[in-house]
């Protein structure tokens, strides 16, 4: 239970912020935190608290898998790469061929979420393929 005490502020915040399917398991020195955040802002808040308690996540004693509640298909998402274009691939994986690009800061349409890492999207040009979700920010 020691880890739950260490990360108490984070866990309490997740509860009050309305994270659903919230699950906390402590096993072999690692705290597993799972759930669905009601918004990206809540997810960011939790990660900021994690960073505050364990700066730069150096202790390696937390695996936090809190996703933002699934956006409905048809949702628009902005390509939030640093500056480059985002590869659109034939399948979910970087081993899949690149079939198109979505421009930096362009808007794509979410077709479906294959998993937390890869989303099937349609670009403004109508190309459909898989993009790495980390670089997509759903528009509210």
């Amino acid at each position: 239970m020691a880890l739950q005490d260490k990360y108490r502020e984070l866990l309490d915040t997740a509860k009050t912020a309305g994270v659903s399917n919230f699950q906390v398991i402590e096993r072999d020195g690692v705290l597993y935190i799972d759930g669905e955040a009601p918004s990206g802002a809540v997810k960011d808040q939790l990660w900021n608290l994690y960073d505050k308690i364990d700066p730069n996540f150096l202790a390696g004693d937390v695996v936090m898998n809190v996703n933002v509640a699934a956006s409905a298909p048809g949702t628009k998402a902005k390509v939030t790469t640093e500056k480059s274009n985002l590869n659109i691939r034939k399948g979910p994986g970087t081993d899949q061929p690149v079939i198109g690009k979505a421009a930096h800061h362009s808007i794509v349409t979410l077709v479906s979420k294959t998993n937390d890492q890869w989303w099937l999207v349609r670009t403004e040009q109508g190309e459909e393929g898989y993009a790495y979700a980390e670089y997509l920010t759903p528009e509210a």
Binding site: V30, W47, N56, F57, L58, G60, V62, V63, M64, N65, N67, D116, Q117, E134
Partner: peptide, 13 residues
Amino acid sequence: KSLDGLRPKKTDP
């Protein structure tokens, strides 16, 4: 964030 989303046993930095 990306790595923890893959459900590892531990992310060791």
